[in-house]
Design a protein around this nucleic acid. Structure first.
Lengths: 211, 211
DNA sequence: AAGTCCCTCTGAACAACGTTTACTAATAGA
DNA sequence: TCTATTAGTAAACGTTGTTCAGAGGGACTT
C-alpha cells in the first residue's frame, strides 16, 4: 500500500501548499483582495484545482483560522504549567498579547473577520477555541478562590480580562491607535496590559500599589 | 434662487436615501454581501446613479463611518459635563459600551472593518474620532492627577481602558463569546466593564474593595 | 500487454460584482 | 423658442467565486 500512502501524502502536500500561499497573500493584501485566481497562479495550478482541496474560499480561511487557534493553544500549554494561578493568568494574558503582536495576520483572521463566520464556528470543529476559553475560565476561578476579583461572576471576570487584552490588540492591528507613534505602539500595549494586571491581579507584594 | 435651493435639497435627500438604504442592507447582510446593484434596487434607481453621489462603494462606508462617530461624540458630550473626573471617565466608558450594544451595525463599521480604511482615515476629516480620543486622554490625565493609575503613562492608561471596553464589545459583536448564553451577554459585558472600573477607578467609598 | 478504471487537473463557461462611458431626457436661464 | 446644464440610465468592461464536461495519465485487472 505504499502507493496509496504516497497519494495521501501528495494530497496533504498540495493542501498545505495552498494554505501557505493563501496565508502569505492574505497577509500582504487582506482576505478580500486575494482572489482564488491569484492563489492558483502562485501555486502554478489552475483555479479549478483549488476546489478539489477546499470547498470554497471561506474554507481556506477557516483552515487558517484553525491553524491559528492551534498555535495559540500550543503557546498556552506552556503557561498552563505555572502553579500559582495568579502568575499563570498573567502569563496567559501576556502570551495572548504577544501572539497578537507577533502573528497579526493570524490574529486578524481569527478574531476580526466577518459576521458570516459564526455559522462555521458552530458546525465545524471549533475545538481549540473552546479549549483555550475553558483554560482561561478555570484559571480565573482559581484566582477568585484566592481572593481576586471577588465581587464579579467568573464569566464576567473572564470576559473582562480576555476582552481587555483582545481590545488592546485589536486597536493596534486595525490601526485605530494611529494617534500613537507607530514604533511605540507595542510597548504602550504591553504597559497597558501590565496596568490591568497590576490592578486586577496584584501579586502579594503589590498589594499596596492600587489606584 | 429658490430653485437652486430646491436642487441642493434634492441632492442631499438623495444622498441620505442612499445612506439609509445602505446602512439597513449592511446591517442585515454585512458590507461584503451588499452590492451597489442591491442598494440601487432598494432606492429604485439604476446602479450608475449611485456614482453621481458617491465616488465608490468605500465612500458610502466612510460616510456611515463618520455618521457613527458623530453619534458617539454627541453621546460623549453629555458625559463630558460631569465635574468629577472619575465619574466622568466611568460615564465615558459605560456610554461607549452602551453605544456598541445599541448600535452594533455602526460599531462594526467604525472599528472592525478592513485594513484599507486607515488610508481614508488619515486623509479625510477624521475629526470626530480624534476629538473623542482627546476627550478620553484629558479625562484619564485628570484621574491620574487625583491619584488613579499612577504607575502608568497616560497613553497606556487610555489605551488600556479604551481597549478593554472595545474588546468586550468586539467579542460580543463578532460573536466570539458564543459560549455565553445569548440573552445574558449584554449584562455580563456590563458586569465585566464595572469590574474593570471598580479596580482601576475606585470611588472613594470603594477604596477597600480591591482584589 | 492490453484494456479498463479512476483520479487529478484544466479550459471554458456562468452569474454577479464594481465601475465607466456614451447617451437620453428633462429642466433652467437666455 | 433656443441653448446649456443637469439627472439619470443602458450597456459594456474587466474581474470575481464557482461549476462542469472532458482530457490525460498513472493504477489495477485480465
Amino acid at each position: 500500500m505504499a502507493i496509496v500512502d504516497r497519494k495521501l501524502r501528495e494530497k496533504a502536500e498540495m493542501r498545505s501548499r495552498i494554505l501557505e500561499s493563501a496565508k502569505a497573500l492574505f497577509a500582504e493584501d487582506g482576505f478580500q483582495n486575494v482572489s482564488i485566481r491569484k492563489i492558483a497562479e502562485k501555486i502554478e495550478y489552475s483555479p479549478a484545482t483549488i476546489y478539489l482541496y477546499f470547498q470554497d474560499k471561506d474554507a481556506i480561511l477557516f483552515a487558517l483560522h484553525n491553524e491559528g487557534f492551534r498555535d495559540l493553544f500550543t503557546r498556552q500549554k506552556h503557561q498552563a504549567k505555572i502553579a500559582d494561578p495568579v502568575a499563570r493568568l498573567r502569563g496567559l494574558l501576556e502570551g495572548y498579547l504577544e501572539f497578537a503582536l507577533q502573528e497579526p495576520e493570524y490574529y486578524d483572521l481569527m478574531f476580526m473577520l466577518f459576521t458570516p463566520l459564526p455559522k462555521i464556528i458552530k458546525t465545524a470543529e471549533w475545538r481549540y477555541g473552546r479549549r483555550a476559553y475553558r483554560m482561561l475560565v478555570k484559571t480565573v476561578a482559581e484566582c477568585q478562590a484566592k481572593g481576586h476579583m471577588m465581587n464579579t461572576s467568573t464569566d464576567a471576570a473572564a470576559l473582562g480580562l480576555w476582552g481587555a487584552v483582545h481590545g488592546i490588540a485589536s486597536l493596534l492591528i486595525r490601526q485605530r491607535a494611529s494617534m500613537l507613534p507607530a514604533d511605540k505602539q507595542a510597548d504602550i500595549a504591553r504597559e497597558a496590559t501590565l496596568m490591568l494586571e497590576n490592578h486586577l491581579l496584584p501579586f502579594p507584594a503589590d498589594a499596596g500599589l492600587h489606584s
